[in-house]
Amino acid sequence: MTASAAKVARQHRTRHWLRRGLFVAYGFLGYAFFYLPIVILVIFSFNDSRSVSKWSGFTLRWYEAMLQDHQIMVALWNSVFVAVVSTLIATVLGTLAALALERYRRFPARLFADITLYLPIIIPDIAMAIMLLAFFKLSGIGFQTWKVSIAGLRLAVPYSVIIGHVAFNISFVAVVVRARLAQMDRTLDEAAQDLYATPWRTFWRVTLPLMMPGVLGGALLAFTLSLDDFVITFFTSGAGFNTLPVRVFGMIRKGVTPKINAVSSLMLGFSLLLVTLALLAARGNEDRKIQMF
């Protein structure tokens, strides 16, 4: 090999490593972009001054203030209540719809039902929100509340909010459960029926256990979306009803304080918990998949 050939080879190698290095650096920057704002947000929730940009020592007082804030606590339990109830309803309805659409290839108006189920996913929440607002006002259903006490707090949750959350969650549950059903071997149901199981028993003994990871995944997604929702709640709640996001929005309007950072960190904690649960559900999904073959 001549000296110049060796030099060219060395240049090539250098360029290769430089390119790889730049690429990895880009990856790190990308993730920094996603995480830094959140991390800074959490850090300043512990800031011992009213500022969210100038560090002046560690404190937990914003968390204390949050816990003592009656409105925030009501909003928190409102959020949880709406999410639990709407998730339960949406999971049952969405799962049944998924079964119909995935197990029956053709029936009258199938396409219409299919599109109806897809639309709430595509349509932006602002459009859905004003639609529901107009509907509740016009139909006279209005914003009547469901009164419950949880954790010593008296909640008044408008039915309209729950109805709205169910309406957008059905579709998401149906999509997730359908994906699971599509993976499942349909002859398993036939095998159960062949072995003298009635359709009802087939469902409980074979279909449901096998599609459970999908149902759980769908329920978790619905729960997350419900906790996450601001726009639809904001429009369908009438006056004076707060979920956590609605409360945070109201607080931001009045000014930025580390208390909002504290509430945000709390919500972040919820999300982390849900991601973990979703991950566990997905694990279950994969185990089952291996067992299928």
Partner: peptide, 8 residues
């Protein structure tokens, strides 16, 4: 054909 054994 594919046995359809219940995986669970």
């Amino acid at each position: 054909q594919n046995y359809a054994l219940f995986p669970h």
